[in-house]
Design a binder for these strands. Sequence first.
DNA 1: AGCGAAGGCTAATAGCATTAGCTTTTAAGC
DNA 2: GCTTAAAAGCTAATGCTATTAGCCTTCGCT
Lengths: 184, 184
Amino acid sequence: MARAGLTPEIVVDLAMAIIDEHGPAAVTLSAVAARAGVATPSLYKHVRSLAELTELVSIRVMDQLADRGFAAVAGRSGEDALRAYADAWRGYVKDHPGRYAAMIQTASPELSKAGQKLIDITLAALRSYGLEGEQAIHATRAFRAAVHGFVTIEAVGGFGLPYAIDESYHRLIGMVIGGLPKPV
Amino acid sequence: MARAGLTPEIVVDLAMAIIDEHGPAAVTLSAVAARAGVATPSLYKHVRSLAELTELVSIRVMDQLADRGFAAVAGRSGEDALRAYADAWRGYVKDHPGRYAAMIQTASPELSKAGQKLIDITLAALRSYGLEGEQAIHATRAFRAAVHGFVTIEAVGGFGLPYAIDESYHRLIGMVIGGLPKPV
DNA sequence: AGCGAAGGCTAATAGCATTAGCTTTTAAGC
DNA sequence: GCTTAAAAGCTAATGCTATTAGCCTTCGCT
């Protein structure tokens, strides 16, 4: 019988498809194996465990998020860059709420490397503010926390009526931006 | 043999103890039953399913959070009230990171009622700002998002070096407060 | 005392991750 | 082209999980 020709990357692809269709909780090795047309234990030739697979998924999601963010920030600066990044971030979550949910419920050393990309992009967007050291850290944390908090609540439908959510987000980002020193 | 004398409340108590000691992932009906000194299926006399138990746990956590918040806001107004609420919220998460993690990975209709308490407290803290309708909604969402985002990232150790985190939080809350119209 | 409900039990089922060990395919080197 | 060894698949088995069914016992009330 011909081989399925799996790789770790393809296994992650399949897991992502399951997340998109049925949510993060539906990601089991059985489900992935069924999609791959393979017996469950065969997956262990490509991933060490379910835990490793979910970690790889998280890294993939962070990378996708970073790609969108990077594209949004490129060629912009100051408030413009920050707002574009914030919108790109939220756009990704709205397009793929399951993926973001899958991402946030995993933590590991490997993951922090992927997460660093998101921080680096924030720093890049903040560059024109000329913040140094501690000031840059505070600004980055504030931006991350505001964006992540808003988008997380929205993804689980936590805002109740979906009334004027765009405007609420715009204002929150405006509060963060307004609390920064003026760009040089 | 004497009965264990369980109630749904006690079952939730035991689940909370497991969360505090071993994290949310360790909450299984087996583990709870072992702690209760009872066979696993006996728990079904008190909770309908594991899903219901985790939901009850989330509601309990939200209630505890609301109690702390209520106490913090009582007798304060304006910026003072908002900062006290923000500090109480974060204090709870620092005291019980596992509980907060357990809370955020559950969503259901029953839960939104408990979540409404947290929103009501925010509205109360905002009262002296005299915000009406849409303005109050935007302000509440911004506050929730900022607080929730920050404490969530902190709870998973997402800020890397634990350097000056108090100050970062203080500044973020300051950004939100600074973006509100002045209290009347 | 007796009766019914509530709270406990054991046994059984089904789904899950994981490990062990075997077989087949594939690709590389001669 | 043949050999060979690693890579990639398989089946079988283990042990954990939630859940259901059906039974027994304890408790509270009359």
